[in-house]
Simulated scan of single mutants.
Amino acid sequence: MAHDVRHEVRGVIAPGKNEPVRVETVLVPDPGPGEALVRVQTCGVCHTDLHYKQGGINDEFPFLLGHEAAGVVEAVGDGVADVAPGDFVILNWRAVCGQCRACLRGRPQYCFNTHNATQRMTLTDGTELSPALGIGAFAEKTLVAAGQCTKVDPAASPAAAGLLGCGVMAGIGAAINTGGVGRGDSVAVIGCGGVGDAAIMGARLAGAARIIGIDIDPRKLETALRLGATHTVNAADADPVEAVRELTGGFGADVVIEAVGRPETYRQAFYARDLAGTVVLVGVPTPEMTLELPLLDVFGRGGALTSSWYGDCLPSRDFPMLIDLYLQGRLDLDAFVSETVGLDDVEAAFDRMHAGDVLRSVVVL
């Protein structure tokens, strides 16, 4: 049954391909069965939002952008038991269904059927909005499936906590969950943006002995050192494959994390790893990209070539654990928050991201 109560909020809309975003009035319904209404406190400006705006995800415009968010549950619909009004939550785009083939095999971190809200948020003229990654949190309130809310310790700073909703979780998870980085391992990370730096932090958390950050922007390499890299390589000046081998006794790294999503950097990752090492692709490629490798090398080098969606995270397991580490001072999530901005500043924040000036701009509502 549709509810006729609708909340009028301000939200950031991408009206059409490559058009500037604008702030409009969004109507958010009261939660129906299995849904939750969340008052958004913070939302990071993520590269995926830019992909949506550029039409790189799909063409279901207009989009309600924003997905890397933290906030407080305001109301829940029927049948919701895991969260209640007043809970401080991080929003996630993997709301585990419990019924698909991955869930039934005990692998919920690969859930193939994640839940989103059933009801649609709209503009005042009734135009239905497509929420980014099923969340749409560049808005004062948003409607999500209750499973998209993960309750964490409210002592955490919302600006830092919300980043676990996407980029930071993707990077930390690429190292810990997908790459299986362990104590004493050598790790190379290609691409030291938000996700790459989070992978560096994850590798450090897992006890890696040597963590090599690779980029072509000296500013990003400085940040990588601050966040836990033991060495950096400027790929504009040096061959990263040779450099990684030199730093690992001639062998290559145990785990190489590719956080760019390009065939050239993927090839570098492939050849920069030790025999039986692991390549983790967490950078997102575009549809036209293809990869060619000598099959004999794929066979002869052994190991694993794997990709990491969302850091293979299980939000209910990983978010509270990482927030606890943050509150203990063992995971510096605050370091990712380069600046805080308002809803009206999102377009400018995209420009700064594109220029590489920020790790994360965070919208504070």
Rank of each mutant, 00 (worst) to 15 (best):
R10W: 08
G11E: 04
I13S: 07
N18F: 13
V21C: 09
T25I: 12
V28W: 07
D30T: 12
H51E: 13
Y52K: 00
Y52L: 06
K53P: 08
G55C: 01
G56I: 02
D59R: 09
E60S: 15
P62M: 08
L64V: 00
G66A: 03
A75G: 04
P85L: 11
V89D: 05
C97K: 05
R105G: 13
N113E: 11
T114F: 14
H115L: 08
N116E: 15
Q119T: 12
M121F: 04
G136P: 08
G136N: 08
E140Q: 05
A145F: 07
A145I: 00
A146H: 03
V152N: 05
P154S: 12
A155V: 01
C166W: 01
C166K: 06
A170G: 03
I176A: 12
G179M: 02
S186Q: 02
V187E: 05
G191I: 04
R204D: 09
I211Q: 04
I216E: 08
L221W: 04
E222M: 15
A224R: 03
R226Q: 15
A235G: 06
V241T: 15
F251T: 13
I257H: 05
A259G: 03
T265L: 12
Y271I: 06
L275R: 15
L281M: 15
G283Y: 10
M289L: 13
M289E: 08
L293T: 02
L293M: 09
P294Q: 11
P294I: 01
D297L: 12
G302H: 02
G303Y: 04
S307L: 15
S307E: 11
W309H: 07
Y310S: 00
S316M: 12
L322P: 11
I323V: 12
I323N: 07
L325H: 13
Y326N: 08
R330P: 00
L343T: 00
D345I: 05
D351P: 00
R360F: 04
V364C: 11
V364Y: 12
